[in-house]
Design a protein around this nucleic acid. Structure first.
Lengths: 214, 214
DNA sequence: GTCTATAAATAGATAGAC
DNA sequence: GTCTATCTATTTATAGAC
């Protein structure tokens, strides 16, 4: 049911804008920034490409908005995990769940993240970089709290971060087209449920932090 | 000092071909398949773009050769690890070292691998897919041997694989431009040596296989 | 807000001289 | 083997009608 009347005249049409953002996310995920086509994005949104330049300043700006949304969402959820009053191991679990939840909410997230890593973060603007930084920062706080509580060893943040994010993104990305391709090549791809994978990754991170991995 | 005379007339000029392959690897790593430009590859090799079509059938064919070289090299080294007569834990260490060694021998390897994962392996031909499959297969054999010897628990291959390859590639990629970008954003990027990272990843994999992570 | 038409640059690929 | 010149399609982006 449509709202009976527009509240204010100036408000931009969110529906069109978000259709463009959704179509763009799919295109950037499938082909990368340089390979994505403004024409294809517009067509996928059922619109004309002139509409993209009506709503966004440039292809780079459009891509930047998608990146900002992704990392802002992760940042918020991860900081909430770090700020919770649960014990250290539960915070680590929440950290893993935070990344998984936002990745699942955006199918384009894992592939775009992978590509952005491959490009050395070339398209991350200052604000997005702060969000990325705050994700690592939140994990560092979780570890430091655990160390203070006598539960964790002071393991390097980047090793823990890579041990969580690497396998997690790999799982989500490999659940798609790559899985089918590998199956056709004779690789017996196992059926891990989402919860099994999360529990495994959490268990590995906890073992690392509790000093059971060396 | 140039060789005094060409041995056989038909032999293709390997030097030029390999200059093109090296330049292409850099371009594909930096911009992805769709974003890479034949013109830029030729210019980076100090040659003309017509030379690319003299040595390769198409852009896709050129990219395919780079992918095949990468995964063939990893496959060979990983199968050697699986076939060695060392104890199970040493085979796991060799598996980690195998991936790291080939990644270090090719700076373009980690970014291209990440991008190919993001694209669902869209550019992997049948032969390259067999190489990828054999990497997972080798790890599966290592795990099965360890289980038979009573040293490992029967952990899912893909979980172990993701736990090794994810963090490893992340480390190599994040050692480049991304590290500098994050440092400028205020993230105190730690200085992990190559050996520390490898030892950590090996330790985590071993803990997983020995059932110390749950 | 949405469209068509178009500009201007660049893409992959080929022809043909040397 | 290596080059210049060129073909054709596609690219990002804009102008201007409605």
């Amino acid at each position: 049911m449509p709202r009976p009347r527009r509240a204010v005249a100036a408000a931009p049409d969110l529906s069109t804008r978000q259709r463009l953002l959704a179509a763009a996310a799919g295109e950037f995920a499938a082909r990368g920034f340089a390979g994505a086509s403004i024409d294809r994005i517009a067509a996928a949104a059922g619109l004309n490409k002139a509409m993209i330049y009506y709503h966004f300043a440039s292809k780079k700006d459009l891509y930047g908005e998608i990146l900002r949304d992704m990392f802002a969402a992760v940042s918020v959820r991860v900081k909430a995990a770090a700020a919770s009053d649960r014990p250290p191991d539960e915070k680590v679990r929440q950290f893993v769940v935070a990344i998984a939840t936002e990745a699942e909410a955006r199918p384009h997230f894992p592939p775009i993240w992978f590509r952005e890593i491959a490009e050395g973060g070339a398209h991350l603007d200052a604000e997005t970089l702060r969000h990325v930084a705050s994700v690592v920062g939140a994990l560092r706080h979780i570890i430091e709290d655990g160390v203070r509580a006598g539960r964790f060893k002071p393991v390097n943040v980047f090793l823990v971060h890579a041990g969580i994010v690497g396998p997690l993104l790999l799982h989500f990305v490999a659940s798609g087209a790559l899985r089918k391709r590998l199956q056709k090549a004779g690789v017996p791809v196992a059926e891990n449920t989402r919860d099994e994978v999360l529990e495994h990754i959490f268990g590995v991170a906890l073992a690392t932090l509790e000093g059971r991995t060396s």
